[in-house]
Amino acid sequence: MSNGAFIKIENLSFTYKDSEGEGKKALRGVDLEIEKESFVALLGHNGSGKSTLAKIISAILLPEEGRVVVDGMTVTDEDLSDEDILKLHKKVGMVFQNPDNQLVATVVEEDVAFGPENLGIEPEEIRRRVDDAMALMGISEYARHAPSKLSGGQKQRVAIAGLMAMEPQCMILDEATAMLDPRGRKEVMDTVLRLNREKGITVLHITHHMDEAALADRVVVIDDGRVLLDGTPGEVFSKVGLMQSVGLEVLPQTELLYELTQCGLPLPDHVTDAEECARVIFEYYQSQKKA
């Protein structure tokens, strides 16, 4: 990946202050670079600071210390103009956790058109973009439906189509799969992966599902406001002990291989795919039988 950094985070700190001025540190000096066109999963249990990070990147929150540069624009400037924020939101789209609270229109296609309408794009161009985005997300057949009649996974795909119609370069999914059932999660992950591979959209996927993180190019684990682990899914998941110590469940196949290697079996530990895991164990078993 030599595409250069799309998001550059330097020494970022943030503290939530309650009404009495008591602070709770959410981020303590985070350094992170997110490459253009990469798919990065951000893992961490509740309260680890991962959502705060997303909010700072999209200029919703201002950090206490440090800075964030998105595609050459410093978004942590206190005197960022409204036009700059608009420009940033055009480049970086956010998908939130609750699908019901981010859809604004009563008809699917009108909702997809909301973003481009805000950008002041010509009506014919909006129509084209909306049709393209709905086709891309596989929701064309629901174009005239009310969002309230759709399933959770379908609603999130509508929300993503709404972003795609704005033609962003990057997409931040802030626990966008947390409220979905397994089928809805798969629907959303499939489409997000496709957008990343086919359209070259940079994806920052905040989640606590290991199986989703396993699909990413890179996994970053955040704990207590710091970057704890950073690497490919295989590298990160092989640190089973460390992951469990910060309250993260690892994938069952990774855990199985970890436990087997702990018992002294010479098995690889960088495996995140269930079938790959089965193959590795089978081959080991075969080789043992021969010997």
Binding site: M94, E109, E117, N118, P123, I126, M166
Partner: peptide
């Protein structure tokens, strides 16, 4: 986040 900034400069698809 979807660039809503009031009615100014807003267009309509329909």
């Amino acid at each position: 986040c979807r660039c809503y900034h009031g009615g100014k400069g807003r267009t309509k698809m329909k």
